[in-house]
Simulated assay, not measured.
Amino acid sequence: MTLNSTAFTFPLALAEKADLVFFSYDLATKHFTYLNPAFEKVWHTSRQSIRQNPLQLFKTVHSEDKLHVQGAYLDLRNGVLVEPIEFRIQVRHHPVRWISLKALLQEEPEAIMGYCQDITGQKEYTDYLNKFSDKKNAVLNILSHDLAGPLANIESLSYLLAHDLEEGKVQEAQYLLDIIRRSSQQGTLLIQEFLRQEFLEAMGTEVMKRRVDLVATIGTFLEEYQQTQQITGKTFHYLPGKETIYMELDDNKFIQVLNNLISNALKFTPDGGEISITLEEKEATVLIQVTDTGIGIPAQYHSTLFEKFTRARRPGMKGEPSVGLGMSIIKTIVEWHRGQIWFESQENQGTTFYMEIPKS
C-alpha cells in the first residue's frame, strides 16, 4: 500500500518495519491512504479490507469504548489537541486487546494521521502490580495474625523450658522442645505456602521486558542471601565477569527464576556448602550459571525434571516440602524470554543449571 498526495509523508522504510501501527486517513474521501504492515498483526485483518471499508474498523472497537473513541474523533475534527487515548478492540476469534492511539489533524489537505500500539501486556502488568500493592497490607495483616499464635507459643514455652532445665527436668524439657518444633514448622509452612502461591499467581501476566543491567539486578537480589550466610550455613559467590551487562529482560520474573533455583540449592546442599552464580556475556546472549556443591540429582530424574508435578520432586535435606512445580515454572519463564535452560548433575557432586537468554 503506497501513499498518495493526500497522505502524510512517513519515513516509509521505518514505518514499514515498525511494530507501531502508522496510519493516514483522508477526511475528504473518508478512506485510509496509508496503513503499515503492523496493522494486520494487531487487528488480524487485512489492510485492503479496511481501506475499502473503513467503517469495518470502528466495528472492532469494544462496545463500551465506542463513545470514548467517537468523542476523541470529534474533538480532533474541531481542532482540539487530543492526548493519546486508550480503548479496547474485539476481533472475532481473538481475545480483547487494549490499544493506545495518538492522532493529529493535518489541515491541507485535511487528514488525520498518527500511530497506535497494542498495550495489552502493559495494562495487564500494571493491573498485576496494582493488585500486588493493594494486597500487601492485607497479606501482612494475615501473616502477622496467623504467625502470632505460633510465635507466642514459642516465647511462652521457651520460658518454661529454661525453668525445667534449671531444675533438671529433662523429660519435661524434651516435651516442650517437641511443641516448639511443631509451632516453628507451622509458621514456616504458612510462609512457604504463601510464597508458593504468590509465585504461581505471578505466572498470570505477560512478559514485560525492559533494558536492565543484569549484573546490578542480580547483585541487589543476592545481597539478601549473602546477609543470611550464617543462618543458612551456605556460602554464596557472585561472579558476573563484567561490571555491567545490559539486556532486554522481565527482571521481576527472572528474579523469580533465580530465587527458585537458589531455594532448591539451599534445600539440597549440606551446611558448609557453596552456591555460586556466574554470568558470561556472549555476542547475542548471556549465559547464567547457578552451581551448588549439594547432593546432586539422581540420574533417573534427569529426563523429567522440568515436567509439572514431576516424579523428581523430593523433600529437602531438612525435610523441606516440594509440590514439584518449581522447575516447570522456571523453564516456562526462560522460554518466554526465548531462552534455553539445561543442567548437569551427579549425585554427591553437586548441580549446575545453565540458562542462555538473548540480550534483545
Score class of each variant (00 low, 15 high):
266 L>S: 05
342 W>T: 15
161 L>E: 00
297 I>N: 04
112 I>F: 13
307 E>Q: 14
249 L>K: 13
204 G>E: 08
92 R>V: 13
60 T>N: 07
327 M>Q: 00
27 L>R: 08
231 I>A: 00
260 N>W: 06
354 Y>I: 10
237 H>S: 10
72 A>N: 06
340 Q>R: 15
333 I>R: 02
279 L>N: 05
238 Y>M: 04
244 T>G: 06
71 G>E: 10
186 Q>P: 00
154 I>V: 10
270 P>E: 11
272 G>R: 03
17 K>L: 06
180 I>Y: 07
67 L>F: 14
165 L>E: 12
292 D>W: 05
117 Q>C: 14
183 S>P: 00
11 P>Q: 15
201 E>D: 14
206 E>F: 13
22 F>D: 02
294 G>N: 01
164 D>H: 15
168 G>T: 14
261 L>V: 00
360 S>G: 06
153 N>P: 01
328 S>I: 00
59 K>G: 09
208 M>T: 07
83 E>F: 13
158 S>T: 12
307 E>D: 09
120 T>Y: 07
165 L>V: 11
232 T>I: 02
80 V>E: 07
109 P>V: 03
141 N>K: 11
65 D>R: 11
70 Q>F: 09
344 E>P: 01
68 H>G: 04
273 G>E: 01
356 E>F: 09
142 I>L: 12
270 P>N: 01
242 K>L: 10
101 L>Y: 09
26 D>M: 04
71 G>Q: 11
286 V>N: 08
142 I>A: 13
307 E>Y: 13
284 A>T: 14
199 F>D: 05
52 Q>V: 10
233 G>I: 03
26 D>C: 05
178 D>K: 15
114 G>Y: 08
245 I>H: 04
319 G>E: 03
160 L>R: 10
228 T>R: 05
14 L>R: 15
188 T>Y: 12
214 L>I: 15
185 Q>F: 02
248 E>C: 08
130 N>E: 15
134 D>N: 15
297 I>F: 08
99 I>E: 06
87 F>H: 11
359 K>T: 06
255 I>T: 12
1 M>E: 08
118 D>F: 11
34 Y>R: 07
323 V>L: 12
132 F>E: 11
193 E>N: 14
115 Y>P: 14
140 L>I: 13
261 L>S: 01
53 N>L: 13
298 P>K: 02
184 S>N: 09
187 G>V: 06
274 E>F: 03
214 L>K: 08
260 N>A: 12
111 A>W: 01
302 H>W: 06
306 F>G: 00
42 V>Q: 01
258 L>W: 03
8 F>S: 13
33 T>Q: 01
53 N>E: 10
249 L>S: 14
351 T>N: 01
87 F>L: 14
309 F>V: 07
96 V>Y: 02
245 I>T: 08
103 A>N: 09
207 V>S: 10
152 A>V: 12
211 R>C: 15
53 N>C: 04
39 F>M: 05
12 L>N: 11
322 S>Y: 00
76 L>W: 05
63 S>W: 07
46 S>F: 10
354 Y>F: 13
92 R>S: 15
264 N>C: 13
296 G>K: 05
301 Y>I: 04
203 M>W: 08
93 H>S: 10
186 Q>I: 09
301 Y>G: 04
360 S>W: 11
235 T>N: 10
244 T>Y: 05
99 I>W: 00
146 D>V: 06
268 F>G: 00
158 S>W: 06
21 V>K: 01
260 N>Y: 03
